[in-house]
């Protein structure tokens, strides 16, 4: 559907995607606690607006790269609940045939490179894809998601510098959730405004309220347009907050209570829901219906994933390098 911030159906679609991400993550959390699903998980509750806002500005054949915290990006880019749950359960019907798991969600047919779990590892790759699009004179852009922790990596500098000198069509999407694992961002940056860095490479950067999905959408649309017209790259710094531990094994005791409360009061879904309710063509029943639909979709997906076929030993070395 064409992104139109005035269109009711489009806005409800955005809302549904955000609710889907939240409910997916909540369910996955309990699947982990129950021990029914293998592996640890890195969750994105509270960061739904960044993934949904950016991906809504992209075309189906544009690409994204993601991180170890990629469930939200995947759902926003159009991966299905079933292929993702199957992947989490290690099933051969998963989006990476059960061999990628939580940290490597992706589906090239849907424009998502399987998640790159190395911090900042996706940035050179995104720049490379953007270079390919440019050399082949294709109109596609790449949106490259990374966190605040990635900005201090050498790979960030090297890839961003190349993207700048070659004016590559890559939207550098920094989800600034304030914590690199257990370290608060201001402990590792003298200038905590990450978008400022763009100017030093000679391109445009902008800081956006990452918990306001329409603000993110508008910024991503501007960035995509600039990239397509040869004025890339663009750095978007989306201010948001990680409300879970770094992974499920992190108790997250280092986040101050007041800071958590402040960010919980800026919940992106509640905010967008309230905005929608201001329209005279959206009712509380519409929003409740979204939640019920999403819950049912996930419930059914989980039941299927639990009995989805596992890869056999004979397939062990297929599709993998090591």
């Amino acid at each position: 559907m064409k992104p139109d911030p005035l269109n009711r159906d489009f806005l409800l679609k955005l809302y549904e995607k955000m609710v889907l991400i939240r409910e997916f993550e909540e369910r996955v959390k309990f699947l982990f606690l129950e021990g029914t699903m293998p592996g640890t998980i890195h969750q994105c509750q509270g960061q739904e607006a960044t993934a949904v806002g950016v991906c809504a500005a992209l075309a189906a054949d544009d690409f994204i790269t993601s991180t170890f915290r990629g469930h939200g990006h995947a759902l926003a880019k159009g991966l299905g609940v079933q292929e993702m749950l199957d992947e989490l359960f290690g099933a051969r019907t998963g989006c990476c045939k059960g061999k990628g798991g939580s940290m490597h969600m992706g589906n090239m047919d849907k424009g998502m490179v399987p998640g790159i779990a190395i911090v900042a590892g996706g940035i050179p790759l995104a720049a490379g894809m953007a270079l390919a699009f440019k050399m082949q004179q294709k109109p596609q852009v790449v949106a490259c998601f990374f966190g605040d922790g990635a900005v201090a990596e050498g790979a960030f500098h090297e890839a961003v510098n190349m993207a700048a000198i070659w004016a590559l069509p890559v939207i550098l999407v920094c989800e600034n959730n304030h914590y690199g694992a257990s370290t608060r961002v201001d402990k590792v940056m003298k200038n905590p405004r990450i978008s400022d860095r763009a100017a030093s490479y000679g391109f445009r950067g902008e800081t956006v309220d990452g918990n306001d999905v329409l603000a993110v959408l508008a910024a991503a649309q501007r960035a995509a347009e600039e990239c397509r017209s040869g004025q890339g790259p663009v750095l978007l710094e989306l201010m948001t907050y990680r409300r879970t531990g770094h992974s499920r094994r992190d108790a997250c005791h280092y986040q101050p209570k007041e800071e958590r409360e402040l960010w919980f009061s800026r919940d992106p879904i509640e905010r967008f829901g309230a905005q929608l309710m201001e329209r005279n063509d959206v009712t509380a029943a519409d929003l409740a219906g979204v939640k019920a639909r999403v819950e049912q979709q996930i419930n059914e997906g989980v039941e299927r994933a639990k009995v989805a076929p596992q890869p056999t030993v004979a397939e062990l070395t297929e599709d993998v390098f090591a």
Binding site: T36, P38, D86, T93, K306, V307, A308, P309, T312
Partner: peptide, 22 residues
């Protein structure tokens, strides 16, 4: 449960042991 979307050949349904695979 609903039938698996794409049943794989010769692969018995595998309920994971509670507590995870490993």
């Amino acid at each position: 449960p609903p039938a698996p979307a794409a049943p794989g050949p010769a692969s018995a349904p595998t309920h994971l042991p509670a507590g995870g695979m490993f």
